[in-house]
C-alpha cells in the first residue's frame, strides 16, 4: 500500500465560544492519514470526532494550527477553491440526510460528476459501475424515500466514491441503521478500500465498527488518547 500522505493535521485546535464559555472541541491535535488507510475515529460523544472530520473535509476551519490535504494548506484556499476542492478531492458520507430527496439513486450518485462537467456517457458508465459495486444497481431509479436507511447509506457511499476522491470521510455512517445493514455497509467500505484503494476515515462509537478498522484513533476531550494499528 502507498505511503503517500493525504491528510496532515498540525497542532490543530478548534475552539467554540458561546458567550463567556470556551469549548475546546479539538485540542492541539497532530494527525496523519496516508493513502489507502481504513481508519476509525472513536471516542465518547463530544470528544471532537465530527469537528475533526469537518476540518479535514474543508467544511470548517481550525482556530489554531493547519490542516493539509494532499499537501495543500486549506487555510490558503478561497471559498470557491474550497468548494471545488470538496467536490473533486473529498467524498462525504453523513449520518443521515445524505441524499437529495428529489433525485433518484442514480441521479444522486451522478450529481458530483455532473458538477464536475464529466460527459454524460462517461457519467453513465461510472455511475452504473459504482452502483453495481455497492449492490444498488437494481434500485437506480428509486428515490431516497423508497429506500431503506441502509440502502440510502450505500447510495451515499456510491456518491462519495464515484468521483474518485483522495479520501472519503464518513461521520458515523452506521449510526442510523440496524446492525445487519451496518455490517453490509462496513463490508462494502472495506471492499472498496481493498479493491479500489479508496482511503476511508470514519467516526464511530460502536465497538463492532471499531473492530473492523485497521487503524483506530481514540479521542478524548479533543485530544489523541490512543492510535492503534496505524503505519
Amino acid at each position: 500500500m502507498s505511503e503517500e500522505q493525504i491528510v496532515r493535521l498540525a497542532g490543530v485546535s478548534r475552539v467554540y465560544r458561546q458567550g463567556n464559555v470556551e469549548v475546546r472541541a479539538v485540542d492541539r491535535l497532530d494527525l496523519d492519514i496516508r493513502a489507502g488507510e481504513f481508519s476509525a475515529l472513536s471516542g465518547p460523544s463530544g470528544s471532537g470526532k465530527t469537528t475533526i472530520l469537518n476540518m479535514i473535509g474543508a467544511l470548517d476551519a481550525p482556530s489554531e494550527g493547519a490542516v493539509y490535504l494532499e499537501g495543500r494548506n486549506l487555510a490558503e484556499l478561497s471559498r470557491g477553491e474550497l468548494s471545488r476542492f470538496r467536490r473533486d478531492r473529498v467524498g462525504f458520507v453523513f449520518q443521515s440526510y445524505n441524499l437529495i430527496p428529489v433525485l433518484t439513486a442514480y441521479e444522486n450518485a451522478e450529481f458530483v460528476l455532473a458538477l464536475q462537467n464529466v460527459p454524460a456517457m462517461e457519467r453513465k458508465t461510472r455511475v452504473m459501475a459504482v452502483l453495481r459495486e455497492v449492490g444498488m444497481a437494481a434500485y437506480a431509479n428509486r428515490r431516497p424515500d423508497e429506500l431503506s436507511g441502509g440502502q440510502q447509506q450505500r447510495v451515499a457511499i456510491a456518491r462519495a466514491v464515484v468521483s474518485e476522491p483522495a479520501i472519503v470521510l464518513a461521520d458515523e455512517p452506521t449510526a442510523n441503521v440496524d446492525s445487519e445493514a451496518a455490517a453490509t455497509i462496513l463490508d462494502l467500505m472495506e471492499q472498496l478500500n481493498r479493491e479500489k484503494g479508496v482511503t476511508f476515515l470514519f467516526s464511530t462509537h460502536d465497538q463492532r465498527v471499531m473492530d473492523r478498522a485497521r487503524r483506530l484513533i481514540r479521542l478524548r476531550d479533543g485530544r489523541l488518547e490512543a492510535d492503534e494499528g496505524g503505519g
Partner: peptide, 14 residues
C-alpha cells in the same frame, strides 16, 4: 437546509 448543507458540502457552491 440539511439537503442544501449536503449539497454545499459535496461541492455545490453558494
Amino acid at each position: 437546509i440539511p439537503v442544501f448543507g449536503v449539497m454545499k458540502a459535496i461541492g455545490f457552491s453558494g
